[in-house]
Design a protein around this nucleic acid. Structure first.
Length: 427
RNA sequence: AGAGGCGUGGCAGAGUGGUCGAAUGCGGCGGUCUUGAAAACCGUUGUACCGCGAGGUACCGGGGGUUCGAAUCCCUCCGCCUCUGCCA
């Protein structure tokens, strides 16, 4: 969430940023925050004074008792009753204000970067790079991947439907091996780039959901385990970034770089429809995520590195791709700037989003209380970033479609050592 | 899952109702000594909020309660340890 000090110091920039996102009444919302914060300070001051009085009296009463002056002590006790009532009512008033203040703050999204284009929907996203020279000419044996996976018997939706439900497929044979091979390849590449691998829990508690911003905003997108009040992760970003919740890092520990593979679970409530077929959208899918916690002065340099890393991965697989800079209206709640990567899936003739790389600046760190202590002993909020590197099923869809031939599907050469086969054939 | 125990500052560890934001040791930082280092000695050393400042308030796992006053008593939740049970 935004820092109140930022709202105060850069009020106009914040208003403009929120308006760019299409948030209505941004100025009033931010004014309310400042008003509430002013009230908070005032009440806190009053309460502190009363508590000060009470503390003083309590000490005096203690001394009177020790000196055996019981009557005087009893008289003094009576004075405290009034103070107690005052502090109680002030305390309630204060906590009401605080609740209201934090509700406001939790509902205010991050301020977009200057370079983020204005716009409302994904139509307005800015295409900053297109690499489409390798879109294959598939001639007349062009099959979408949902036909291919059936023909080659490598993903089984029907059995997934029976065992769990729609959106939970079984990968089989070469398909299962392809998933595992890609995960290993992506993790190896992340390791080469200096990311330390972790294998995080795939369920998280409420505090973690709040920390990275999935809660309270996107409550309905996560699977909730009610019996334990835990959530299935929608991305490894959540557990990995939350490793650093309530942590004060020393300068020389930076940058923190982690990679992790997890299944990701998304309810995708409301986004299901006939246009979503095959591997394009699932309730459970595998993804390798990269996360960094960095010095605030270096986060844009790091963002470029992460974008470069993802681009190299996609290139190495020989897939046509493009890079988008999301417009303000399409930008995630917590993000300052996001680059999306899409690969071209040549049979369905569609661009598929396979990665999203974002800088959150201090937005997550503020919720997480993730700080850096510099050599002068001063503390400041860190910047957090993350990116998919990469999401498996859509990469798989594009590989299958783009590399299909009459009676086989070629695997990208870079994956051969990870697969134990060079092409998928029937049987 | 059941029974019992425990949860205090960066770490270790005192503290069972008032003078406790908290002894002591270690670690950290500064200094003396030394050519330099170590040792020794001296000093200093939690976080957050409010305030120009003096200073004030809150925090001893989380939340609530009793009391004029709670690290200390009570309730509850969470976590850890031991034993028993179950299980990959």
């Amino acid at each position: 969430m935004l820092q109140i000090s930022t709202i105060e110091k850069e009020f106009d920039r914040c208003v403009k940023g929120l308006e760019k996102r299409g948030l209505e009444g941004a100025e009033n919302l931010l004014k309310d925050v400042l008003t509430l914060d002013g009230q908070r300070k005032k009440l806190q001051g009053q309460l502190d004074d009363i508590l000060h009085e009470s503390n003083k009296l309590a000490k005096e009463i203690g001394q009177l008792f020790q000196q055996g002056k019981k009557e005087e002590a009893e008289t003094a006790k009576k004075k405290t009753t009034e103070l107690k009532q005052k502090s109680k009512s002030l305390g309630e008033e204060l906590s009401n204000i605080e609740v209201s203040l934090s509700r406001h703050l939790y509902n205010i999204p991050n301020i977009p970067h200057d370079s983020v284009p204005a716009g409302k929907t994904d139509e307005d996203n800015e295409i900053i790079k297109v690499e489409d020279s390798n879109i294959p000419d598939l001639g007349n044996h062009k099959k979408p991947h949902w036909d291919l996976i059936e023909a080659y018997d490598i993903v089984d939706f029907e059995t997934g439907n029976k065992v769990t439900g729609a959106g939970f497929p079984f990968y089989k044979k070469h398909g299962a091996r392809l998933v595992r091979g890609m995960i290993n390849y992506f993790l190896d590449k992340a390791a080469e780039a200096g990311y330390e691998e972790v294998q995080p829990p795939v369920v998280i508690n409420e505090d973690s959901g709040l920390g990275t911003g999935q809660l309270p905003d996107k409550e309905g997108q996560m699977y909730h385990l009610e019996a334990n009040d835990l959530y299935l992760i929608p991305t490894a970003e959540v557990p990995i970034t939350n490793m650093y919740r309530d942590v004060i890092l020393k300068e020389d520990q930076l940058p923190i770089k982690h990679s992790g593979h997890t299944p990701c679970f998304r309810r995708e409530a409301g986004s299901w429809g006939s246009h979503v077929r095959g591997l394009n959208r699932l309730h459970q899918f595998d993804k390798v995520e990269i996360v960094q916690v960095v010095d605030p002065n270096k986060s844009y340099e790091v963002l470029d590195q992460m974008v470069g890393h993802v681009e190299e991965l996609i290139k190495s697989l020989g897939l046509p791709y493009r890079i988008l800079r999301l417009c303000a209206g399409d930008l995630g709640f917590t993000s300052v700037i996001t680059y999306d990567f899409e690969v071209y899936s040549a049979a369905q003739e569609k661009w598929l989003e396979v990665s999203s790389v974002s800088n959150f600046e201090t937005f997550q760190a503020n919720r997480l209380k993730l700080r850096i202590k510099n050599s002068d002993g001063k503390k400041e909020l860190a910047h957090t970033l993350n990116g998919s590197a990469l999401a498996i099923p859509r990469i798989m869809a594009a590989i299958l479609e783009n590399n299909q031939a009459e009676d086989h599907i070629k695997m990208p050469e870079i994956l051969h050592p990870y697969l134990g086969f060079k092409e998928i054939r029937k049987n």
